[in-house]
């Protein structure tokens, strides 16, 4: 075997995130970002949402969504920077910024959801 590359792991996260993002994010974003603020659909009240977000299953779901979507972003954005701007010589910096950002966001999501009350 060749040197064990980490690329398969990053790609697996990217793909899982891509699937998650494709299936789930459009409806979430449509409701939260457009339909509720613009009053197309009456927004659910604070009490209901707070109750929903307090139960463990939705919290696990939200954590997975944040975690995978962020690693999806990190992987794609890293290659977009390489190819789109031809800055592959900044390889290490880009790598650290992208996956570092994803790890930071994931930890933050974990912190917020763990301490949700």
């Amino acid at each position: 075997m060749a040197k064990q590359s980490n690329e398969p792991i990053l790609w697996a996260l990217f793909s899982a995130g891509g699937v998650f993002a494709a299936f789930a994010i459009p409806v979430h974003l449509f409701l939260l970002g457009l339909a509720f603020p613009l009053g197309w659909i009456p927004a659910p009240g604070y009490e209901y949402l707070h109750g929903l977000f307090s139960s463990p299953l939705p919290r696990i779901y939200l954590f997975a969504l944040c975690f995978l979507a962020l690693f999806h972003w990190a992987h794609r954005f890293r290659y977009t920077l390489y190819d789109g701007l031809q800055i592959k010589h900044l390889n290490e910096v880009i790598f650290v910024c992208c996956y570092g950002g994803a790890i930071f966001g994931t930890v933050l999501a974990g912190y917020l959801l763990w301490n949700f009350h």
Binding site: A2, S5, P8, Y79
Partner: peptide, 18 residues
Amino acid sequence: AGERMDVLAQHEGIWGCT
């Protein structure tokens, strides 16, 4: 397939493809 994987599963192999 195992022999080819040494070449294909590198960054210069499949992982460069976007």
